[in-house]
Amino acid sequence: MAAAQQDGAGSAEAVDIVDRAFAAALHVDGDTALDTGASLLAAGERAPTEAALTRRGEEFVSRAWQRGWLPADLVRHVRRQLAGPHVRLVETLISGETRRYEGLDGRWTAQLAALGTAAAPGAESGPAADRFTRATVTLELFRLLLRLPAIEPLGPPPGTPPSLLSTVHVSDSRALGRIRGLLAKAEATDYPAEAEALTAKAQELMARHSVDDAHLGEAAQAQAPGAIRIGVEAPYETAKAILLDAVARANRCRSVWNEELGFSTVVGFERDLEVVELLHTSLLIQGTAAMTGAEAGQRAAGRRRTKTFRQSFLLAYAHRLGDRLTATTARVTEETADAETLPVLAARDVAVTDEAERMFPRTRATRVRGASDHDGWHAGTAAAEAARWTRGRLQK
């Protein structure tokens, strides 16, 4: 009994220390406030104080779920705003908080599986970090989590009854396997023309993939559009967001960019969303490689305006690729869709548009700036035009 009373007193003291540290550090900006809070935490008894911090951290994570955030969103946001120790800590808190749920939505399960290896308790700042440093990292993370804005929910939060959960999962279909293979080859080749031809073939398969879904008829119509969030990172985030929008539209989806939080939300049917994510990632890799090569030529000629060249390159690349991808989708639809499939495709387009407008009733067009470098624009257009193809094959 005496031991139990001692543990309870220690726990109460730890909670009081944590409360005072939070009052000092979380609601006030500046390093002085952080130092005060970290000093309070470092002076407390270690085990109960860290246990109290873990409980409070998991509460912050739970609030994030209620405000529309997903695990991948939270980790990406922490990575953008803070540093590695904070990312390891938030992953640990996410793993601990979600462990208490019996069932999770399919997308949650996939995102949790993709988290990095969770740091051991007490090692979030590295094995050599002292208690004051660890306390500072913890308070910096909690300050960020406390101030998270509400964002558009993409599905049921944890705790939803299993009967209401979706079964979203990464498809293992043969078509998507072929698409992944083509894009991997496009990323690996050193020849721009070959990369463009492989990407073109991948887009053709994506378009056929979507038409095949429409052939399911009533089953396809019964589905509802979903949404995913894709990170749009600096630098040149405007060009990257435009590229994602172009890829989304070419694959019967809609994209809305949140510049402040560094992501775009893509609305569409699940299998279309997956190919959008695949293609956008691949095109970013290919575009960056082509830009680096073109930039090297410019530097060899004595140019130094790297930033404007890159911005203009990527904008041109996104603009021209969007045209080509959309043209490929239109051609494949014309060749493969029949009188029964076309109304289904049209109904799916309407459903996607309606869902995007429901989720984002207030959007605005963004004025694009930065396409001021003629050489960069020309090089970006050339990269998107590097190959000519017919049915996915290079024309010689």
Score class of each variant (00 low, 15 high):
207 A>S: 15
261 L>M: 08
73 D>L: 03
346 A>I: 07
137 V>N: 13
301 A>S: 06
13 E>Y: 00
87 V>K: 07
120 A>W: 13
61 V>C: 08
115 L>N: 04
284 L>A: 09
152 E>N: 05
23 A>E: 08
230 I>R: 04
134 R>C: 09
56 R>W: 05
110 A>W: 10
164 L>V: 04
203 Q>S: 08
182 L>N: 07
239 A>T: 05
98 T>G: 01
194 E>T: 14
162 P>S: 10
278 L>D: 12
187 E>Y: 00
48 P>N: 11
13 E>R: 13
56 R>C: 01
150 A>K: 13
30 G>S: 06
43 A>L: 09
178 R>Y: 03
158 P>M: 07
239 A>R: 04
57 G>Q: 02
391 R>S: 15
296 A>L: 11
205 L>S: 10
354 D>T: 12
75 V>M: 09
251 N>P: 00
308 T>Y: 01
59 E>L: 06
124 E>V: 15
365 A>M: 10
221 Q>V: 10
171 S>T: 13
222 A>P: 00
12 A>S: 08
310 R>Y: 06
192 P>R: 12
129 A>E: 09
369 R>C: 06
307 K>F: 09
162 P>D: 11
187 E>A: 08
97 E>W: 03
215 H>T: 12
277 E>W: 06
203 Q>V: 05
396 K>I: 14
136 T>N: 09
323 D>I: 01
234 A>T: 14
207 A>N: 07
130 D>M: 11
345 L>S: 03
